[in-house]
Design a protein around this nucleic acid. Sequence first.
DNA 1: CAAAACTTAGTACAATGTACTAAGTTTGAA
DNA 2: TTCAAACTTAGTACATTGTACTAAGTTTTG
Lengths: 189, 189
Amino acid sequence: MKTKDKILKEALRLFNERGLSQVGVREIARSLDISVGNLSYHFPKKEDLIMELLSQIRMANDARYEEYFEGRASLGRFLGTFRQIMENQYRYRGVFLGHDEINQVIKKHFDYLSIEEKRRKFFHRIYTDLAKAGELKLAEGDIEFLISFITLFGRFWMMEASISFTDKSKEEIIDHYMGLLKKQLGLFV
Amino acid sequence: MKTKDKILKEALRLFNERGLSQVGVREIARSLDISVGNLSYHFPKKEDLIMELLSQIRMANDARYEEYFEGRASLGRFLGTFRQIMENQYRYRGVFLGHDEINQVIKKHFDYLSIEEKRRKFFHRIYTDLAKAGELKLAEGDIEFLISFITLFGRFWMMEASISFTDKSKEEIIDHYMGLLKKQLGLFV
DNA sequence: CAAAACTTAGTACAATGTACTAAGTTTGAA
DNA sequence: TTCAAACTTAGTACATTGTACTAAGTTTTG
């Protein structure tokens, strides 16, 4: 294997282990028994390394989608494709994960599992009450689904916004995401 | 205002401006015209500062939820509460945002808006085809909703997993999130 | 009034990303 | 085979970062 590929492979391994920001170029070089100068020859900046990994993900994902479009449209096929995408993302998880100080700080200082537990109970109560009051019609499993939805949603809507809506105002952004939440809950009215 | 509060306020302002990892303790001190030693007296570690801000968010949010629980259960009231939560999160967005190298790298090197556009068209086609094939029953606005959902979902399921499911295997994690996606799409079958 | 709380300026250290040099080695095309 | 390009090495250097400490002052408060 070419040194360049070795670097990419080992870097991804280390990123998956500890996260993007926790792995320095010196460590990647040390782990491969090559010099920093060598690594620097192939990837002058850490960014270049990350970019290469990102390109690999994109190419792999694009290939999956193209495969999908070649066949007939079916829910089963789509779900299969999406699962492959997820597997692929997981393979490169280090590129996406652990690069955030914040979650590390939270995990270090808060009893995060109990916060999670509390949050679940919170929403469970909210949805149960709404069902009792006749505001929502919830079947078996719906509550768990809605809890998962709002957990993911509440945690990441703002990151999503910072990526997708760079030029929108606070009000527009919040309106947009409130619209999503309303629509989602509206499916159970 | 006490110095401690001044520090918190200015730190948040800078974090909101450029993101957690882009603002150093020296800059916060300089910006306030106080010494690093002084800042260090109040917050020995940057983490301590972040923790304080996080606590403020939590307290504010908890207060909103408690208010909600004091009144009667209604969808409208819940949505109102959630909007307040979102406003609050937005106020502290710097603590959550921009702390990730990855999005900065992506935005710097890729034409991100066109990728976004392409992704939307991708999913638009997928859902339209599925509707035509009779696999999904989609009314006005449903497609936009599903696109927004899968965009958020596909981007953040893994981060969510890294927070919520620390002990689960890859297969279990992917199964769980595939379950959510199936359930969501199942609502339109 | 005295102690506690606060503030200052300054130093220090290890780690990081980045950048460069001068020298060798390997490899592939003419 | 030859020779230039591609690759690899070890080492140096620099600015920036989080973190930690000191010794000295000032302000606040019980």
